[in-house]
Design a protein around this nucleic acid. Structure first.
Lengths: 225, 225
DNA sequence: CATTAGTGTCATAAAACGGTAACAAAACTT
DNA sequence: AAGTTTTGTTACCGTTTTATGACACTAATG
């Protein structure tokens, strides 16, 4: 079930029609408050969220959703007329999984929804997260590198999962904390460093290529090399 | 390298010509068996696949490719004369990334290929700034020149970002400071010179064309000489 | 209840980065 | 051409940021 949060009725109709013909179940919501309520009453599998919504903006909705444990993993594609780099970054920062600029083709939206689903809900599709010679299985909660099983503590596991769901993307320490610990928890940023170190060493230390890149001043990302 | 699987030679030629003038390397394949063989011998970066191919249909090729681990992520755009919703859904179901109905403009195909690549390439949704042979990716925070990755400190990165967001426009030292350091911060104008120097040298020094133009009395700008 | 695995912090070491001054070179001015 | 202004370059050193090891504390396990 996909929820479309879009205030312009025409736009919403077109989207609904197209998504339905692509096999998705669709609900719509005309404003921010209603969106939040619908999500609370019956959590959709996917949210297509307009940046500019009456009452509560898309950005704000995104931020709020990410604070609720249950909605941490709700896949969100943000839609907006604005195309500035800053906005894109901002959308990704508040936790959107992807971002589309109007006008866009419905085909592209459908394709992106599928792409995001493939990436963020591997458990649903029975997929595993893979990166380089790393395999992370969410179902069995096991990690394998280059064929060998690796033991990780819960925190390290979640951090690795967060990174693998966004390969190449740099996550700030704050983002990592949000994703691995949860919001509204106060932990020293430095603590992330320590866990990254533990993770690195569990992944093979100096014996194997380091897959976690330090991005000075920002955070960490998964990376080849 | 893009592989075009298309049985009608004229069509294939036109596509090839257009893709090549957009900078893609192109190979072609006239039938299903040859397509699979070419992919096995030398995996292309992208597949443009006609639905109706002799010997083995496009749909069938798509299905088979998706079963092979190595080709799970090969981006595929399906091309067909049929435009029924059902076909569209079917194409996406068997794992195509996008779908185009004939007749279509080559421009649109190029645009779609780029859209799909943006989505599926390592950075996934990396928003990239480009100028000449420079690519700056805000999401993975990486800079590439002419194919080689370049390491920049945070300040140099931000300065380059500021310049690339306004290609050709001259930025005063003050503006650069505001953009890279933030407002209300006091540092010497001369410091910008030093960072520009570091940036130039990181971008290849004397080995490659200098992309940063000095505008005496004003500041700096990105420029192709 | 004893033991162990897992966590968060701190202190310290090690890098990486950044701002400046000082001088050289280049570009304008007259 | 000499003088003046602006930019290029280098070296230096303090600061910031990250890596690492040790330790205390808690939750989980048997």
């Amino acid at each position: 079930m996909v929820l479309i949060a879009e205030d312009e009725p025409g736009q919403a109709e077109v989207l609904k029609y197209n998504l339905e013909s692509s096999g998705f179940g669709v609900r719509t919501s005309p404003n921010g408050a209603d969106t939040l309520q619908q999500i609370e009453e019956d959590r959709p599998d996917f949210l297509v969220l307009d940046w500019m919504l009456p009452e509560i903006s898309g950005i704000e909705i995104c931020r709020r959703l990410r604070k609720i444990e249950q909605n941490k993993d709700l896949p969100i594609i943000m839609v907006t007329a604005r195309g500035e780099e800053e906005d894109r970054i901002r959308a990704l920062e508040v936790g959107a999984d992807d971002y589309m600029v109007k006008p866009y083709s419905s085909g592209e939206l459908v394709a992106r929804i599928n792409a995001v689903l493939r990436r963020t809900s591997p458990a649903l599709i029975g997929e595993k997260l893979e990166f380089a010679d790393l395999v992370l299985d969410l179902v069995s909660r096991k990690v394998k590198r280059d064929g060998d099983f690796i033991h990780l503590g819960p925190k390290e596991f979640k951090i690795l999962q967060a990174l693998m769901q966004r390969p190449g993307r740099v996550l700030s320490r704050r983002q990592i904390i949000d994703l691995a610990w949860g919001q509204n928890i106060y932990i020293e940023d430095r603590t992330v460093d320590v866990h990254i170190r533990r993770l690195r060493s569990a992944l093979g230390g100096d014996d194997k290529p380091n897959l976690i890149r330090t991005v000075r001043g920002f955070g960490y990302s998964l990376d080849q090399e």
